[in-house]
Amino acid sequence: MSDSFYRTYQNSLREARFVMLLWFITMTWTICYCYFQGYLTHSEFPFLDSKENLKKSSDSIPMLWGFPTWLVYGVMIPWFLCVGISVVYGLYIMKDDDLGKDPEEEIST
């Protein structure tokens, strides 16, 4: 088994671990922030339905560029961060690995 085969396997595994870690972080942040900041009622945790939450009314909607602020911090900024991570990780950190050849190509070479 060649060194490049071993390297590709190791790099793929490391990258898969990174993906799962990033998945967990984004899910935790987005779900928790949006649920606690952006929900009017919390049927799963009724004690969260404080006066503050029920005060949310049509008179004043906190907005940024037309988007409700709970979505800006809960979804939009994490989304842009993920794009940034994709760019940095994809272009500068992820390794270029030898993926090998198909059996018929090996025979012909």
Binding site: L22, M27, T30, L71, G74, V75, M76, P78
Partner: peptide
């Protein structure tokens, strides 16, 4: 927007 948030990753 929250429903589709998973598409960020």
């Amino acid at each position: 927007m929250f429903w589709v948030a998973g598409y960020m990753i």
